[in-house]
Design a binder for these strands. Structure first.
Lengths: 135, 135
DNA sequence: TATTTTTACTTGCATTTTACAAGTGTAAAG
DNA sequence: CTTTACACTTGTAAAATGCAAGTAAAAATA
């Protein structure tokens, strides 16, 4: 588990203290796309996170109120993770990451299609997806 | 030095492969604010990066064309670092980080003042600062 | 000119974090 | 009743980080 010790009062530094590693924002990404994920869903992502790291990151994100755990409606054996409002509010940041990456890397077609929508009306896109994720 | 091995084709993942650690974006932050920094300038930042980590990060950012080294006009003993266009283009992302942090943390007054300007005209703010950094 | 200081790193090593493999406990399915 | 699914935990080697000290070239100072 990474400690959440604050390095400075800078907002950038404080933010990185929470999600400034190679995995946390991928978890957030999965949840922004899927709205709800189980532990197993995260493991299925292309990057191949290991189980112990996933558990540690989920705990840290939960402790920092970025995500929350919910009981799965179908089974007690499953757990649902979803974003809190604080986590949903990372959407603008996530969009800018994608836009930057689109400019400097080659990215998958489906993501390009999404960004086309974003560029048409960024504010509208954010509002619509936020609403969907909150419901 | 961290390896730059690509974990997937996801733009978020590719981005994190480059600057997804606790220090890289702080270096970018310093350069977005100051336009140019020496090695010693980075060491002065409040977070207290150690010299070996700083050297490793500067090298990785340079290899990924986020920053570039320039000879210092006053002295051969000094080195100037500045952002490339690719690095300057991280400004929208940096702004969203600050906006998110402002909502969920208490942040310094001077940063609040900056964000007030951002909120008045985000596009204008980005264009103006980009122009300044490019010159 | 000789010496000291500044600047940008490098090196060594202890501590922490990560990655990989395997295992555990509970719930659900057959 | 046994097997499978699911969400983790544990152990350990590899890698990254943090800290202190050291180095080499250039600049400032005596």
């Amino acid at each position: 588990m990474p400690k959440a010790k604050k390095r400075s009062d800078c907002p950038v530094s404080c933010s990185l203290d929470i999600w400034g590693d190679k995995w946390s924002l991928l978890i957030v990404r999965d949840l922004l796309f899927a709205k709800e994920c189980t532990y197993g869903d995260f493991l299925k992502s292309a990057e191949g996170i290991s189980t112990n790291i996933l558990a540690a990151r989920l705990l840290a994100l939960e402790e920092n109120r970025i995500i929350e755990k919910l009981p799965h409606p179908d089974s007690k054996a499953k757990v649902l993770y979803r974003l809190t409002r604080k986590g949903i509010d990372l959407l603008p940041l996530m969009i800018e990451i994608n836009l930057w990456a689109e400019k400097y890397f080659s990215i998958p077609e489906d993501r390009k299609a999404m960004l086309k929508e974003v560029k048409k009306d960024k504010t509208g896109f954010i509002k619509a997806l936020t609403k969907k994720l909150e419901s």
